[in-house]
């Protein structure tokens, strides 16, 4: 029973990654749109988009780490 609850908790943690996925997709969409409007600034937009995506990805990685901690430390 306890193990099942831990698995459920880890699954709930990773659920936070869903929002990050949607929003990172939004970063990519906006980057493509602005490169389409202004192809000369493609280099700058690309690096800004990668930085933005990387910073927003931190949230998902925290979720993942908490899930790992639950599985491997609480569950062990």
């Amino acid at each position: 029973m306890e193990k099942a609850l831990m698995a459920f908790a880890a699954a709930l943690c990773v659920l936070g990654g869903c929002v990050t996925g949607i929003m990172e997709g939004k970063v990519a969409v906006k980057a493509v749109e602005s490169i389409g409007k202004n192809p000369d600034a493609a280099d700058k937009i690309q690096s800004m988009a990668i930085i933005g995506a990387a910073i927003s990805e931190t949230c998902a990685i925290y979720c993942l780490l908490v899930a790992f901690l639950i599985i491997f430390i609480l569950g062990a």
């Binding site: 990387a54 910073i55 990805e57 931190t58 990685i61 925290y62 993942l64 780490l65 790992f68």
Partner: peptide
């Protein structure tokens, strides 16, 4: 924290 955990989390999750 964010600099180190980003790298750590990505590579660790890939390995697992």
């Amino acid at each position: 924290l964010s600099l180190s955990l980003r790298l750590f989390g990505n590579i660790l999750s890939g390995g697992i």
